[in-house]
Computed example of a mutant assay.
Amino acid sequence: MDATLRLAQQPAADALLGRSPLALMTGMLLDQQVPMEWAFSGPHTIAQRMGADDLDAREIAAQDPERFVELLSQKPAVHRYPGSMAKRIQQLCQYLVEHYDGDAEAVWRDVDGGAELLRRLQELPGYGKQKAQIFVALLGKRLGVRPEGWREAAGAYGEEDAHRSVADITGPDSLDKVRAHKQELKRQAKRAAGK
């Protein structure tokens, strides 16, 4: 895997995301209840704190859970909820070790179609339908992973020229458009709740 991504808006963190399937998958896992850039810079921070250039599913899965929580909790914390996210990251890595021999890219390598890719992603710990659909779109739009039916599997996130999610971010301008889209969705939800 070798892609140019600008999700963390930090060159070293984005370079890791572009070359490491596990880092990208971990960033997507962290992308909740924190700004996108914070979430996607998390894998780089974890790798640095582990004294590595990349993330290794076997190594993370084997970490002492309390020590891994401490690693994510160091200032600045990797996430707003470092304890629960440390647990989720370890669960993800344990799943990858058990089902894909620790190879995150094997989740999408040689899939028969978009529906299978979506199913495989939804089976990952911490990946619900929406997160899995966004990741399908991210793989298709930014990494060229386009099994037959990938846009349909991604739902609205697979639409061309959309600005709905991290799958549509190519730089600061598109990040602003995605952020504006998300804010508009929040405003609509508040209006609907107020009725």
Results as ranks from 00 to 15, higher is better:
residue 112 D to P: 08
residue 161 D to V: 06
residue 8 A to V: 04
residue 23 A to Y: 00
residue 80 R to A: 11
residue 36 M to Y: 02
residue 187 R to T: 03
residue 120 R to S: 10
residue 184 E to G: 07
residue 152 E to Y: 04
residue 145 V to G: 11
residue 141 K to P: 07
residue 189 A to G: 06
residue 154 A to T: 08
residue 187 R to D: 04
residue 186 K to C: 02
residue 120 R to Q: 10
residue 163 H to D: 11
residue 174 S to T: 15
residue 6 R to A: 13
residue 15 A to R: 12
residue 189 A to W: 02
residue 120 R to Y: 11
residue 79 H to T: 01
residue 64 D to M: 04
residue 159 E to N: 15
residue 32 Q to F: 04
residue 35 P to E: 12
residue 191 R to T: 09
residue 165 S to P: 00
residue 16 L to R: 02
residue 88 R to E: 07
residue 10 Q to K: 13
residue 58 R to G: 15
residue 180 A to H: 11
residue 183 Q to K: 10
residue 104 A to M: 09
residue 177 K to A: 14
residue 189 A to P: 02
residue 63 Q to L: 01
residue 159 E to A: 14
residue 180 A to V: 04
residue 96 L to Q: 05
residue 40 F to L: 01
residue 144 G to F: 03
residue 12 A to F: 06
residue 173 D to L: 13
residue 126 G to A: 09
residue 146 R to C: 14
residue 33 Q to R: 10
residue 29 L to C: 01
residue 108 W to L: 13
residue 43 P to A: 05
residue 137 A to K: 03
residue 194 G to S: 15
residue 84 S to P: 08
residue 72 L to I: 08
residue 126 G to F: 06
residue 50 M to F: 08
residue 183 Q to M: 11
residue 9 Q to G: 14
residue 144 G to D: 09
residue 85 M to C: 00
residue 70 E to G: 09
residue 97 V to T: 09
residue 50 M to H: 09
residue 145 V to W: 06
residue 154 A to I: 05
residue 21 P to V: 04
residue 148 E to C: 11
residue 29 L to G: 01
residue 39 A to Q: 00
residue 154 A to S: 11
residue 103 D to F: 11
residue 70 E to I: 01
residue 137 A to H: 02
residue 56 D to T: 06
residue 183 Q to N: 12
residue 1 M to P: 12
residue 25 M to A: 03
residue 183 Q to I: 08
residue 42 G to P: 00
residue 170 T to E: 15
residue 61 A to T: 11
residue 21 P to K: 02
residue 128 G to I: 03
residue 116 E to D: 09
residue 173 D to E: 15
residue 100 Y to E: 14
residue 42 G to T: 02
residue 86 A to H: 01
residue 80 R to P: 08
residue 71 L to S: 04
residue 83 G to H: 13
residue 54 D to L: 05
residue 137 A to F: 06
residue 57 A to H: 10
residue 144 G to E: 05
residue 50 M to K: 05
residue 116 E to C: 07
residue 188 Q to I: 09
residue 169 I to S: 08
residue 127 Y to E: 05
residue 19 R to E: 09
residue 165 S to M: 03
residue 127 Y to S: 06
residue 171 G to S: 14
residue 116 E to R: 07
residue 123 E to F: 10
residue 85 M to S: 02
residue 173 D to V: 14
residue 82 P to Q: 03
residue 175 L to H: 12
residue 116 E to V: 13
residue 38 W to S: 12
residue 190 K to L: 15
residue 9 Q to N: 15
residue 64 D to T: 04
residue 175 L to D: 10
residue 108 W to I: 12
residue 53 D to E: 14
